[in-house]
Design a binder for these strands. Sequence first.
DNA 1: ATTAATTTTTAGGCATACCAAAATTAATAA
DNA 2: TTATTAATTTTGGTATGCCTAAAAATTAAT
Lengths: 218, 218
Amino acid sequence: MRTETVENYLKTIYNLSSDNTLVVSNQKLADKLSINPASVTEALRKLHELKYVIYEKSYGTRLTTTGSKLALSIVRRHRIWETYLVKELGFGWDEVHEIAEELEHVKNDKLINKLAEILGNPVYDPHGDPIPDAKGKIQKSNFIKLSEARIKNNYKIMGVTDHSTAFLKYLDKHHLVIGASVNVKSIEEFDNSIVLVCQKKEVNISPKAADCIIIEGL
Amino acid sequence: MRTETVENYLKTIYNLSSDNTLVVSNQKLADKLSINPASVTEALRKLHELKYVIYEKSYGTRLTTTGSKLALSIVRRHRIWETYLVKELGFGWDEVHEIAEELEHVKNDKLINKLAEILGNPVYDPHGDPIPDAKGKIQKSNFIKLSEARIKNNYKIMGVTDHSTAFLKYLDKHHLVIGASVNVKSIEEFDNSIVLVCQKKEVNISPKAADCIIIEGL
DNA sequence: ATTAATTTTTAGGCATACCAAAATTAATAA
DNA sequence: TTATTAATTTTGGTATGCCTAAAAATTAAT
């Protein structure tokens, strides 16, 4: 298997089950990778042979220790590059995902560690995702989703789980950036949409969007 | 054809005939790409169909205007990255070639132009090779090889044509870096090796090495 | 518990990009 | 000019990584 293929599978499996408790379904993998489920089955069998995953037919998949290490190193590369693109090269948080998707496959530890050093070994990337250190150790946190927020409470935006340009530009427009303080004014019973107050302005957040915003109680 | 494959073929054809006058042989291409000549024939037929090259059976290959533009953009990416790695990230000129070989395939003009801007739009890379500008325009020069130097003359080192770590480390050891002034003390009749004086020390250069050093008369 | 819906797997195929060995073509030397 | 050598192309074959359609297995619903 080509390294890039392996890396993309392992990274995606990791992203679908970062704590490695849950087992990952082929369907979800196929969706994320934009390929046919039949191809996923085939690939997982090979990844199992290569000892990167434990794949049990018609049940699910999880990373082995080796697979997990490799996945973490890809995730590290991706997140370090995203941070570098934003902090050092002046890109917006809404335009770095695609580029990092390519840069993450450049295999050179010295390069990534150098970038990390220049950035002061950051622990979070521009989307609030934790960056594994050179050993693969990753910051744990107990943040919640905005969709789980309670009415009248104050929160701080800590991250996003959708990295698409469209979504991030929408957030920018309403000043819903990482670090921003927000208050949950009300939750519509009808459709579960959330009315937020951010910088004294009201914003209506759809349930789908609220599911992609990570917050911490204040 | 995968873009990376196309890019590697076009870049290699360009490097073997940068002025696009000479026609490139399959054998040389196969050598540079470390693949079988039969595979080269096959690939060239496809590149011809795709209008990137004009390939005439049993005669040779040259780039079309389209192919030349693409080749120049890969060469630009490669050389900008090499320069960035050396100047901004502290790598040695002997360790950047391999990394740039991967980075050159990252497709994002804004990124490359940003890097170029940070570097002050350099015209030469760390090995003395000219960097095409964003439009593909490239600096012409009439440098010669050290192997063509004349006795007793003074020269300035302008570049190298071999980018291997081994060769560059050897040059470093004798202070034969870009910009260094050298004097040709003598040329051995026996084997054409050259005795140089650089920083008051004598160095004996083999014909093979002399063929990889680019100089300019002083 | 049986049916229905969904997910996963199998089977058969296709394009890419490489290979080795044989055949052809071109270049060089006698 | 012919023979020899070298380069190129053809032929047939391989592994990868994807596909569609059909079959099988699992899960959910009645």
